[in-house]
């Protein structure tokens, strides 16, 4: 199986993939290893980091899951500099991270099954408490924040995606498709299209802005992914799925078509071992929480 084959990181890391996203002119993107974050400001080791968030101001936040903390870094000209540690008792097992437009941190705690909200300095502000009609309790599996600070919460126990505005008021509820495997993530692109990712069947479903139901987006990409668990969209609308068990990234067009696969299994810089989350900034840099390698890696994605 090709995903099992590791390639040497000293060679340029990844494949060059032709991105021909739905009718747009063909573009190429290469992912190249830029830097690796192994330590905090006090030279403490990262442990099984599962979350990573970044913004255009050069802020990088890591959910250092194994150490039950968040770490902040500054990114400038390809260099990543440690900043601060955020360790609050309200976070037991931080996993997925998002930043809102003000630099506030939203983090999913898998143990507590809650989304915590921290301000830009790391002070705990409370847990997100959505109150959709007819639902006793929202139990988040995953979530995303869009540019307007709207929150998209995937609740697989309720089999729904709840959309809430920045005040926490639920503005829409989307039922998850019934005929599916296991939904692992929700994503939203710049145009407001909401996506959900089924890891078991390796399929993406989408709902256009204002739609009341999801419909399948293209075919299953099971031939190209083992167990995709995280989904995000870049600023061109290309979808990137993190293939946790296959140690790589799968790129999909806006119509769900398979565009290519990047990165592969390994332990040296540039390779992945059970990756869990990816964050893309406006410069096209990508940060990958490389969980079982106990590190976060930075890649430059070069449009060609």
């Amino acid at each position: 199986m090709t995903v099992l084959r590791a390639i040497d990181a000293r060679v340029i890391v990844s494949l060059v993939v032709v991105l021909a996203a739905s009718g747009a002119r063909a573009q190429s993107v290469a992912f190249k290893h830029q830097a690796t974050v192994y330590r905090d400001a006090k030279d403490g080791k990262l442990s099984a980091p599962e979350g990573v968030a970044c913004n255009d101001a050069g802020l990088l936040v890591i959910a250092d899951t194994g150490n039950a903390r968040l770490l902040t870094y500054f990114v400038k000209e390809g260099a990543v500099t440690p900043a601060a540690e955020v360790k609050v008792p309200q976070l037991k097992h931080p996993v997925r991270l998002q930043l809102d437009s003000k630099g506030n941190m939203l983090v999913l705690d898998r143990k507590l099954r809650k989304i915590a909200r921290l301000d830009a300095k790391g002070a705990f502000q409370g847990y997100v408490d959505l109150k959709p009609a007819g639902v006793t309790e929202v139990v988040p599996t995953s979530f995303k924040v869009d540019r307007g600070d709207n929150l998209y919460v995937l609740d697989t126990a309720a089999a729904k995606v709840f959309v809430a505005d920045s005040s926490g008021a639920v503005t829409a509820t989307l039922p998850l498709p019934a005929d599916a495997g296991a939904f692992m993530d929700v994503a939203v692109d710049a145009g407001g299209i909401v996506y959900v990712l089924d890891a078991v069947r390796a399929t993406v479903w989408s709902a256009a802005k204002g739609a009341t139901a999801f419909s399948p987006l293209g075919k299953s990409f099971k031939d190209y992914a083992s167990f995709p668990t995280y989904l995000t969209a870049n600023n061109r609308g290309v979808l990137l799925a993190v293939d946790q068990n296959g140690a790589g990234l799968v790129l999909l067009g806006q119509d769900g078509s398979y565009l290519g696969r990047q990165l592969s299994l390994g332990w040296t810089d540039g390779l992945l071992y059970y990756p869990s989350q990816i964050c893309l900034d406006a410069q096209g840099d990508a940060f990958v929480a490389d969980r079982s390698n106990n590190r976060v890696q930075m890649f430059t994605s070069i449009a060609q």
Binding site: Y38, R39, L46, S47, G266, W267, T268, N293, N294, R295
Partner: peptide, 8 residues
């Protein structure tokens, strides 16, 4: 320590 990755 794993020579390939100082955090492992």
């Amino acid at each position: 320590v794993d020579p390939r990755n100082k955090n492992l």
